[in-house]
């Protein structure tokens, strides 16, 4: 009794789709680089500029690592930009109070994690939609940052924190053998290395640990995950805390870059972060999205901004472009899942 009248998708179609999912983000990046390579002045296609772009990727990249977990679990975080600002202000205040670099940075990350705890708590305990919750904290965290900073930039000594985002970092601390043999293109801002390391850890977390499997399961089919005994609420809470802690880390580095705690910084950065994750192949309906993809997406966003700047494209055009890219990437995802679903 054949009660299903549809053929299964052939194995070749499945394989082709997997390849496209992997190659897609790279293709997007190549297109953007190629486009600006043709349009922008010579300086665009240089090692120095590549390093600049890498540095400019860090803030969005770190936040995108966290956002990958959230989006993979079927949630969304709109409070990223405000969390970055709050963390940068908290770090600046701690530095100003003379706490030293490491404790100040830790406090910045903790401030981020606190926003995440609020997000996660409201999402899991009150069962509110993450869109609304994080829309609320988008406003509240920004307000808290302004309140703490007394509505102005917080001047503070930045110590070695400013080295993190420096394109020409002080490498005198490294052993002499390393220093002499280090090729110049590897002398990247420490923040880039930090981002790379975080990405590796996050990829491991996502692929090899129970936490990663549960994150995917919740995004893929939440009722089933609950039925199978996955502690859905606890896992979600942890996801939001982790993601906001990453945004907090981004805020610490933002302080290092600006050398002031700026409560108005990273305004609207959540759009770049979500765009990076979605360009990387994540679906807003959950279950998919990789760290590698998010990193490529973040690099693409930074390349876009950098290319626009070098070509003299005004800022407002960039903003329109970012908006269009998000809508475009989500449309692509919709088409993709419609094809799969049918």
């Amino acid at each position: 009794m054949a009660l299903e009248d549809q053929p299964d998708p052939g194995p070749s179609a499945v394989a082709a789709r997997q390849v496209m999912d992997l190659v897609g983000p790279f293709l997007g990046l190549i297109v953007v680089v190629g486009l600006f390579g043709a349009v922008a002045p010579e300086g665009f296609l240089s090692v120095f500029n590549a390093k600049t772009i890498a540095t400019q990727t860090v803030i969005v990249g770190l936040a995108a690592i966290g956002a990958t977990f959230i989006i993979r679990s079927g949630g969304i975080d709109l409070s990223v930009g405000s969390t970055v600002a709050l963390a940068s202000v908290v770090t600046a205040l701690a530095m100003k109070a003379g706490l030293g670099e490491l404790p100040s940075a830790l406090l910045g990350v903790l401030a981020g994690a606190a926003v995440g705890a609020i997000n996660g708590g409201l999402v899991t305990i009150l069962r509110l939609p993450p869109f609304i919750v994080t829309l609320g904290t988008l406003g509240a965290a920004r307000g808290a940052a302004k309140w703490l900073a007394d509505e102005q930039k917080v001047d503070a000594p930045s110590g070695w924190l400013k080295q993190f985002m420096s394109k020409n970092p002080d490498i005198s601390g490294l052993p002499e053998v390393v220093r002499e043999n280090l090729p110049s293109w590897l002398i990247l801002a420490p923040g880039v290395w930090l981002m790379g390391l975080s990405a590796l850890c996050a990829a491991f977390l996502l692929r090899r640990t129970i936490f990663g499997a549960w994150t995917t399961a919740i995004g893929s089919n939440e009722p089933t995950a609950r039925l199978c005994g996955v502690p859905v609420e606890r896992t979600k809470f942890a996801i939001y805390v982790l993601a906001s802690a990453m945004a907090g880390l981004a805020g610490v580095l933002q302080f290092g870059r600006l050398t002031v705690g700026d409560p108005t910084t990273a305004m609207g950065k959540e759009l770049d972060v979500i765009a990076a994750v979605v360009i990387g192949g994540a679906s807003l309906s959950g279950g998919t999205g990789t760290i590698l993809g998010a990193m490529i997406g973040a690099f693409l966003m930074a390349t876009l901004a950098n290319g626009c700047n070098l070509s003299g494209v005004p800022n407002f055009v960039q903003e329109i472009l970012v908006g269009a890219i998000i809508v475009g990437a989500v449309t692509l995802d919709g088409l993709r899942s419609r094809r799969e679903g049918s």
């Binding site: 499997a213 995917t216 893929s220 089919n221 199978c228 005994g229 996955v230």
Partner: peptide
């Protein structure tokens, strides 16, 4: 009741 984005093994072991 399966999670389509997980492998067969991950589905079978999910929650345990």
């Amino acid at each position: 009741n399966l999670c389509p984005h997980l492998s067969v093994l991950e589905n079978v072991t999910l929650g345990r």
